[in-house]
Write a protein that binds this DNA or RNA. Structure first.
Lengths: 342, 342
DNA sequence: CTGTTAGCGCCTTCAT
DNA sequence: ATGAAGGCGCTAACAG
């Protein structure tokens, strides 16, 4: 004979029975959306619920309420430190606001992006935060059309509600810092050109150089991939011709910067002393590299908070917030010595 | 007058109406757990469902079925590349088996670990995978007692079902590699001693040295934190006395190895040429460092698969699987030159 | 404030 | 193979 050893899960009914009131009373008392009543009954019900170890069945509750208190987050991958930091910030914000954040990774394939989004929507998320938007991505458009609450973070497609760092300002800060140190021949290595962040950071860099009358020419801008190897390649290209070497390099993300550092090492050059380098995002590794990396710190928590505001505000259509980043100077950038070209 | 613009979500009822059968028929036809019928009705229902864009309401379904097709994953943080890789592997495995993986991060605090677990259980996950277990952690015990399906990954408490890499073997491979290169004076830097992985890796290292008659003395083993800084500190300590420097260092995770590399650089030593270094986990960064890091690659996908097997198998109590890792030799390890002590 | 009633969308006997 | 009916656990509308 089969013996069910499954422990009984305590439901509202149990609490109701144990405290001698109706199920709906218990439901109301335990509803944390309304101000908690101080009546004796309420107190007693709460105590009983506590003693019995009652926990609301989220699914049943959501089914009835029509909302789940869950928001979905879509990122290409979590092994990218920037994405992991962004998600952790979103998770914290969600928790603080009584929401739960679930993440799905989708790589770089637009098809997987679609299906991952559908998986999230299938789980009745109240909204979606996308950290994947390319400028030419059609997913945000499709979400708009379908009436799905959503917000983009870190990048924008120019249409959907977006919470960004101020990439133009960040690029400006980075290169302005180099300019202040006396550098004039500065190269920029940036990620794929299909992201708004890459373009904005280069724009900021260009502005900083323009302020001292220097033109950032196209041959000084390399747009490449995300990975460290891309940075190494770009670095190699920039260093190939000793006479044509820049005195400083702004890498528009830390992974690229790390790659550039490798290229420097391979060329027998010293970071800081020979060539200054600025990264972007300030991932934990930046501070702990052999030569600590000057980087632009992105306010992920603020961005997450903004994304939530946009997500929960019906009237946010087309709104874009940009939060100022902060330059964190470290040893990878130094004043241009007497040996440098002027 | 208020105008509801919310799009109607198509339910079983809609599909039933549109295809002229009852709701239960549709439910049965669309149930992917049973072999799909080829009858005309079934075909038609599927077509209609497709045209209408029907998607099963996961919550309603779960409420009725009593299981959710979701498993919860608990990790301390996703900004740790190892944890991110582990989660991504679990996510892939879950998807392949028709499950959905949700993650919660809980930092290092046991209290947060408890509450994060409860949050996951509140969401009716069918089971929990923990990547956090300390040897002295009481959470697994409490899950066992409560009858919650669970599995530990990467570390074990010695009791709950666990899917591990074979850390003893990994430690052995790492140090055996160094021994084969002629090294005899080898130091080991490892993470916190409260993890099974730290202890097992050191044990393997000791065995490899014992094979050539060398004793790994306690002063050659440094147990420290996880972070890069911990590695730097340990490295500094090992290099402080030039006469007492080891010829090789086995760092029991790549972050520690990166820290040790920093310490080498600070001491004016060259990785590989002066001192060989082996890391563990083979995070993406390892291959792309200025001097590519020899590391032990952990089979995360296999571990994830094992964890799932343990999770779904009722009779897995106390079972522990260990999967062999692979040494990936790179330039950070070299044969001990004539200058080395022999 | 409390209880009664009626579902949310789906699955699963049970009977046909 | 199909349909009718009941209920998973919870909440909202309605009376009292």
């Amino acid at each position: 004979m089969e013996q069910r050893i499954e422990r009984h899960v305590v439901t509202l009914r149990d609490v109701a029975a144990a405290s001698g009131v109706s199920v709906s009373t218990v439901s109301r008392v335990l509803d944390d959306r309304t101000p908690r009543s101080r009546s004796t009954t309420a107190e007693r019900v709460r105590r009983v619920a506590d003693e019995l170890g009652y926990r609301r069945n989220v699914f049943a509750s959501s089914l009835r309420r029509g909302e789940t208190g869950t928001i979905g987050v879509l990122v290409p991958r979590l092994t990218d430190n920037v994405m992991a930091m962004m998600f952790e910030a979103i998770e914290r914000t969600a928790r603080a606001r009584g929401y739960f954040a679930v993440v799905a990774t989708c790589g770089d394939d637009p098809t997987d992006e679609r299906s991952a989004t559908d998986t999230l929507l299938d789980r009745n998320v109240d909204g979606v935060i996308l950290a994947t938007a390319r400028l030419d991505d059609t997913l945000p458009a499709s979400l708009r059309e379908r009436g799905v609450s959503h917000a983009l973070v870190l990048r924008t497609d120019g249409e959907s509600p977006s919470a960004l760092g101020d990439d133009e300002a960040g690029g400006y800060f980075a290169v302005r810092h180099l300019v202040d140190l006396g550098h004039r021949d500065i190269a920029v290595v940036t990620g794929p050109w299909f992201t708004s962040s890459a373009r904005d950071r280069v724009r900021g860099a260009r502005r900083a150089l323009a302020e001292v009358g220097v033109d950032l020419t196209d041959d000084r801008v390399i747009s490449t991939g995300y990975g460290i190897e891309s940075g190494t390649e770009a670095g190699r290209a920039l260093l190939a011709e000793p006479a044509a070497r820049p005195t400083a390099i702004f890498a528009a993300n830390d992974n690229l910067a790390i790659g550039v550092v490798s290229a420097l090492a391979a060329a027998g050059l010293t970071v800081g002393a020979d060539i200054s380098i600025v990264g972007y995002n300030d991932i934990p590794l930046a501070a702990t590299m052999p030569v600590p990396l000057t980087s632009v710190r992105v306010p992920f928590d603020q961005i997450a908070a903004n994304a939530f505001d946009l997500l929960l505000d019906e009237s946010s259509a087309g709104r874009i917030t940009r939060t100022l980043p902060t330059l964190i100077p470290r040893s990878s950038t130094r004043a241009l010595g007497p040996g440098g070209a002027r």
